[in-house]
Design a protein around this nucleic acid. Structure first.
Lengths: 331, 331
DNA sequence: CTGAAAGCGCTTACAG
DNA sequence: CTGAAAGCGCTTACAG
């Protein structure tokens, strides 16, 4: 009961293997009747070409790699779902590579390349010189997801992080708020830096003093830190780089009897399900992470088709974001 | 600047390709000096064997498939992280297959097999006869994750869903509660059925009347439904099959001025980050989903090594769960 | 439009 | 312990 091979199909159809292969890869080169006969047998036997053999012979594997630091953030899963849906549409299959250890970077990247994928989608928060070199010497197209590649040499798909932070800050200023706090993450993620820049620029442009604090990514640490901060000062508005951080901040405030949104307004970036499960519901800048993954795979498909590598003139696609006003802000 | 091939290594080391291959696959068969020389060159050149060629020649790809219906649930991402960490330990690489369309089941499964993985980790909520047949005829080991396979024919890794629901129900009864509501999902997931059974058994065993309602998986629908339900009746305890549902239920109650946990106690299953971001913090039965993924890959490794297929005597591993008491319940 | 043949980059009996 | 050779299951120029 083992899987049928191309020989079996050829035999059953009374043609050579070359013809079966052509039916699959260049159907227009095969006479209609032959093609249909072969296709029927392929369907009957449930034949699928062996991916390894095909990849080896054609040097095309119709496989792409998704490279991520870790999966525990819900947003990464959504992004992959976006990639997956688009990949399926184009007949690509996904290899998943997870590595959070910078010391393994080189070996890890070699492994990705050895898996002979046709292209790589790279979700990478911190771009080091070493990674830069690795990517530069990659023989297949690499596209960065949700982060802007240093030096703009590589293609990327994301949103205008700086612009969205600027826009929402400006809007809150327009609504009469002056004391606006920006809370970022201790770890240096390029997207956070961009959002911080946008916030900073909007404050300065309006003659206000930016106030930026950095917190941990860990829930328990955050709560303590936020609680202490709020003992000293309650801003009019707090913007936090992640939904989960925003909700922690809000909960810390509510436990102290601070009214949201009357005394404190809270804004998060991302719009995960957390935002809707919060009470009150969180106002967010929605980062369409599914869409980003989906578009990224779409763009990668083109790069692969055109045989573009990272040296070529690469696209920087910005997906639309939007602001979702809910219960943690007021007009 | 293309990747070095095995020929390049052989040439540089002054040996045949067979020897290089042996150094990689059966190092004990190669003389120490030769081995070390070859290894040094491999390291210098950053050589990684081409995965397709290796897979084709050896019929072992050191690749496993993770098959999931969708990725948008945070728990799936954690599970995959667990798999990934264990896979890396054993040198396996991951192919990710996502399909939520039952009509494509057969074709989809053929694709998974054609990718010539050495084993399959299958996260599957609803086990149909068709899927059953497909899995039965699979030439490599298949292990079910987080769901019990029908007829116990296939191996699985999960937790004792029935037992944990029984246990927490019994504990809440011991604490003097009688009016305990169980809220499940409209969709027929095997794990939900098991939890429902456990709850039901505990209620009956204690002479209490089980009350079970079914809700949607969608947030907005749930909120409306829960709100209406609470207008008619507020139970002493509500247990919901997912954290997110539990939090929706709780928020609906709080908006009506119902005190949690004084008037209503709420319990969720899973213990995602949602539980900690809720206010008050949610009491949960923790389902160690990372651990489940991790152990599953561990078990699969053994199955692959022993060449066991689904016909063999397969293991059913139960990972430990625990109950995490937080602020939505009282003693 | 179709077939025979070479080749993709490896692994693994088989000799020695 | 090591090498020469066959073969894994495909694809793709090259002839015809």
């Amino acid at each position: 009961m083992s899987q049928p091979k191309i020989y079996d199909i050829a035999g059953a159809a009374g043609v050579s293997l070359a013809t079966v292969s052509r039916v699959l890869n260049h159907p227009e080169k095969v006479k209609k009747e032959t093609r249909e006969r072969v296709l029927r047998i392929i369907r009957e036997k449930g034949y699928k070409p062996n991916a390894n053999a095909r990849g080896l012979a054609s040097r095309r594997s119709t496989t792409v790699a998704i490279v991520v630091p870790k999966l525990t953030r819900a947003s990464v899963a959504e992004m992959i779902q976006g990639v997956s849906d688009s990949a399926q549409k184009y007949g690509y299959t996904i290899r998943l590579f997870v590595n959070d250890d910078p010391t393994r970077a080189k070996d890890f990247w070699a492994e990705v390349i050895a898996s002979s994928v046709d292209g790589i989608l790279f979700l990478n928060d911190e771009m080091t010189q070493e990674v830069y070199e690795l990517v530069k010497n990659t023989p297949v197209p690499v596209l960065f997801i949700n982060s802007v590649a240093k030096g703009e040499q590589f293609g990327s798909v994301g949103i205008d992080y700086q612009g969205c932070a600027y826009q929402i800050t400006e809007e809150m200023i327009r609504r009469g708020n002056k004391d606006i706090l920006f809370v970022s993450n201790e770890r240096v993620y390029s997207v956070n830096i961009l959002m911080e820049k946008g916030y900073h620029a909007a404050m300065v442009a309006n003659g206000l003093e930016p106030k930026i604090i950095y917190s941990s990514g860990e829930l328990a640490v955050n709560e303590k830190f936020f609680s202490e901060y709020l003992d000293h000062h309650v801003p009019e508005v707090a913007m936090l780089v992640r939904d989960s951080m925003a909700i922690s901040f809000m909960n810390s405030a509510i436990r102290k009897g601070i009214k949201v949104p009357d005394q404190l307004q809270v804004i998060g970036f991302q719009n995960t399900r957390y935002a809707l499960l919060a009470n009150p519901k969180l106002t967010c800048v929605e980062i369409p992470i599914y869409e980003i993954g989906n578009q990224a795979m779409e763009v990668l498909t083109k790069l692969m088709k055109e045989g573009l590598t990272v040296d070529s003139d690469n696209p920087h696609l910005l997906v639309d974001y939007k602001i979702i006003w809910r219960e943690t802000t007021r007009n």
